[in-house]
Amino acid sequence: MLQAADVPFEFSTPEQEQRYKDLAEQLRCLVCQNQSLADSHAELAQDLRNEVYRMLVQGQSDKEIIDFLVTRYGDFVLFKPPLKSGTALLWAGPFLMLIGAILIVFRLTRKNARLVSPELSNHDQQRLDTLLKPPADRKRI
């Protein structure tokens, strides 16, 4: 891995500096796997940091800068994957799991509540139901 020169950038405003930091944090370095541009020591990461900085100073928007990298390196550079058909399950997954879990807990609780409150067992309840039903219905059983 080549080492980068690691030159500090000068920013005109704190907002600009913050934007730069946010961008560098959410973009992935390609050479050194699984590090952000901000954290990477690789030379390519420094080159890309330079590009991000240059575009930022030129007044380009965050979206333009991100698009610049995505058209060249693909969605892989984004640590926050965009919501697309391929990532729908990724984003929906945790919420589906949560809803599923709530449903299961709810069902068990209702089952449990039936166990707790009525003094009658299921069998007794059925017998009671049959007895209380009008005779017309009873014949059909």
């Binding site: 390609l30 390519l44 590009e51 060249r72 693909g74």
Partner: peptide
């Protein structure tokens, strides 16, 4: 390496 970036060289 600027053209390399345009080619997505990593």
């Amino acid at each position: 390496g600027r053209v390399g970036i345009d080619f997505g060289v990593y």
